[in-house]
Amino acid sequence: MENNLNFHFAVDGNDFTSAGLASVQLKKALRQLGLDPETIRRASIAMYEGEINMVIHAGGGEADVEVSEDCIKITLADHGPGIKDIAQAMQEGFSTATDHVRSLGFGAGMGLPNMKNYSDKMEIESTPGEGTTITLYINI
């Protein structure tokens, strides 16, 4: 559709302090579009978890968001180590995060489950050694 809005964000993998900046910017943009607060919250949280994952596991990546009339599509792509066993990674509480990451408040094994639960549809493509692309669809 020609009226779709697209946003692109580069996620810096070397700076934990600024992680989440893209999600903050997305949230502001979605607010300006006047979307329902609950939809904005779901999209922002799902994106934030994805952004944090890219920073702590994959050295950063790219986030692309497309807002159409009835859907927010978020594509998160990285060139990190990939996910060996996606089914295992989807289990609540399963985490490969380091103790350092846990000390920062993440790595509770809730990132991917939260992304799935806050979106209406989630697709994961991952190749160990090459990277991961996660696509989230949030219905408007």
Binding site: R41, I45, Y48
Partner: peptide
């Protein structure tokens, strides 16, 4: 309520409204 001190605490609260 948290005992964690880093900028992600604020961002988390912001995302959650």
């Amino acid at each position: 309520l948290t005992g964690l001190v880093n900028s992600q605490v604020i961002r988390t609260a912001e995302m959650m409204d």
